[in-house]
Design a protein around this nucleic acid. Structure first.
Lengths: 341, 341
DNA sequence: ATGAAAGCGCTAACAT
DNA sequence: ATGTTAGCGCTTTCAT
């Protein structure tokens, strides 16, 4: 049987209240008794009971982390990294993260994760794009919420986002600086705000450099931005446009698909075509040549989300806070400077 | 404020004890009152407080799920699928899963996941290979344990394993049935019991068919069985042995690496060389030709692990139960029948 | 079949 | 600075 606060109190010859004060690091306790109590705590290897604390504090000490199952099962460890970031940050504040996935085609007949129904969480982090029907249903429970890496259509919860516009700008500007003019953009699921923003950044970079936007160079679709769809998009683009010298793919998965298409069709990278991706996932390191990309600090995103939700739990007057996490250009070998020296 | 058992009791004009009996589905309650109480519960959207229940029952209602961080971040969603299986099964019994990762080079100076120190879990599921130092440290806390997809050297906890020997047998036998005689085995980290077992199955299949084992056809190493190492292993094997007609790779990641090597070197698959993998991960579907493999029911593994841990929590006299989950041969297009018709 | 009441381990208001 | 005590929401004897 694990020792209780009473055991500690008795052994240290103080009251349970004193022990409680020590545990909670109150300043109104003498250094002497504090030391004494701490010693007993260590001796007994005492750890406060979470359920007792939760019961009296009317908190659960848990944070829900929700994402769609296809995001969780994504081939590239993108959201798992974000999760790890929240897990890490949760240690400060001693929160536990409860992970739940929802179907990506969540509809009205689906139920909410049970930690919501059972009110076992103090707040919720939602990672990545989730169906609107889910968000709507969630509204009934007024739990502190924070979205990470997704901006829902209408929802005034705090947001932790990557600076996608800036990222798109960085990516396209890099290609322009390398002398490219005929730069394609390949994106899936254009209804996704992140992808739209990356495209916006791309357009802005062209404008900044006085390069005329060319619709033929922009390929978007409604499908998931994965390797296969990158392959297919490249096929379409390159069959119609022989003059493309560089491709900005909206994420690394699609970029890799593009590379496969090009290789299968006799192009060499980066001699014939330069490619830049977005995300900086591990797969990048396995491919040849190593992919130039925009690095997204996934772990930081998660940690930041946890900080925000902690704050929201404390001050329920959550501002419509938006945190924009900066991204970084990582130049590797899939892009080539084609300026005449 | 969420309604409490007292609110329900008052509104239903019964005692809290009665409500409790209803919640816990006791048989010693009249159908009539039960119905009445249930109605009020629904009206109020009442859900029992977990912390109060946990406090009185001296249980936490949580299960820890531990794996190394590189397994969690694995490119193929293998362990995430297992996790999803436990999550799913956890709904029966209303458990929450607390996920924690440990460093894959866990040593004496590392700490245990805090849900163990804080005794916030009733049992622990350990997924995949974990360092011995970790297991040793874990012993101090006598928590119910179950290992899934890993058999530690000495540890008498229940085990949920894939039938790797059977899988190896199935894989090699398939190739033999297809007329192959010079069959290579490619494996990483031969200290891993699963990989050893797959090799055992391979050897057994050769024996069964009276094919002489040839050490030159077996390549193992101490490194992580990933794509790159598969590529490198194939390079070594094929530079020395021109007569190999089929490869059994110890997992799909390595198999894909092998395929890349072969393609880069002018072999066509399966015309020149047949390949079979192990795991059946999603990546298989993206490659060309689709990979013949041994399917591992990952979700089931996780679900099974949770069932076992639930059982261990109830009857602390956990037998040294070993559950062997069967695998299945999935024939796709990377293997070719070369028998003369 | 149902109710009254004690108690799980802790915190916080109040008392000393 | 430290102790006393009520009470958080629930389960579980023990009565009735």
């Amino acid at each position: 049987m694990a020792p209780t606060i009473k055991d500690v109190a008795e052994k240290a010859k103080v009251s349970t209240a004193t022990v409680s004060l020590v545990i909670n690091d109150s300043k109104r306790i003498s250094a002497e008794t504090k030391k004494k109590v701490l010693k007993v705590i260590k001796q007994l290897n005492y750890h406060p009971s979470k359920s007792a604390r939760d019961l009296v504090s009317q908190k659960t000490g848990n944070i829900g982390f929700i994402l769609t199952d296809d995001h969780f099962l994504r081939t590239e460890p993108f959201y798992t990294r974000i999760f790890l970031g929240t897990e890490f940050e949760a240690r400060t504040g001693n929160y536990y993260i409860l992970l739940a996935t929802i179907p990506s085609d969540y509809g009205d007949k689906n139920t909410l994760p049970r930690f919501i129904l059972q009110r076992s969480v103090d707040g919720i982090i939602i990672a990545g794009k989730v169906p609107n029907a889910f968000i709507t249903k969630l509204q009934e429970y007024d739990l502190p919420l924070v979205f990470v890496d997704y901006k829902p259509e209408m929802q005034k919860s705090p947001l932790v986002l990557i600076d996608n516009i800036q990222g798109g700008l960085l990516a396209a500007t890099h290609l322009i600086n390398y002398g490219h003019r005929n730069i394609a953009f390949i994106g899936g699921d254009i209804s996704h705000p992140s992808i739209r923003d990356r495209l916006t950044g791309y357009n802005r970079a062209l404008d900044n450099s006085g390069i005329k936007q060319n619709k033929k160079f922009v390929h978007t679709s409604s499908s998931y931005p994965n390797r296969q769809n990158g392959y297919d998009a490249a096929k379409i683009l390159f069959s119609k446009n022989k003059n493309i010298t560089a491709v900005f793919a909206c994420n690394d998965a699609m970029a890799i698909g593009v590379m496969h298409f090009l290789r299968d069709n006799g192009y060499s990278i980066p001699q014939d075509v330069s490619i830049i991706g977005f995300d900086d996932v591990e797969a990048d390191l396995l491919i040849d040549p190593p992919l130039t990309t925009i690095r997204v600090p996934k772990f930081d995103l998660g940690a930041e989300a946890l900080r925000v939700i902690k704050e929201s739990i404390k001050n329920s007057n959550t501002k419509n806070k938006i945190i924009l996490v900066p991204v970084e250009l990582i130049v590797r070998e899939s892009t080539k400077n084609i300026r005449k020296k």
